[in-house]
């Protein structure tokens, strides 16, 4: 099991994938807002989305798991 984690603290602005989706390495899977800036979260590896751990509007800390890749 692999995970995609938050590179910095911020608020989840948008989630582009849902459970079961195939994602490619480098694909934008989420948008996080931190310090008035939109930061795209990219998949570090390809695979199938096992679980999306956060919802739009959630506050996340650096290192929090956002998505579990199967």
């Amino acid at each position: 099991m692999k995970t995609i984690t938050a590179a910095m603290a911020g608020t989840v602005l948008n989630i582009m994938v849902s459970t079961g989706d195939e994602v490619a390495e480098g694909q934008e899977v989420m948008m996080i807002e931190s310090m008035k800036m939109e930061i795209p979260v990219e998949g570090a590896m390809s695979g199938k989305v096992g679980e999306v751990k956060v919802n739009i509007g959630d506050f996340v800390n650096e290192g929090d798991v956002l998505i579990v890749i199967e």
Binding site: A7, A9, S34, M35
Partner: peptide
């Protein structure tokens, strides 16, 4: 700024 000096990404 509190940001990465290379990527300019925020760094709270």
């Amino acid at each position: 700024y509190a940001e990465d000096p290379v990527s300019f990404f925020p760094s709270p």
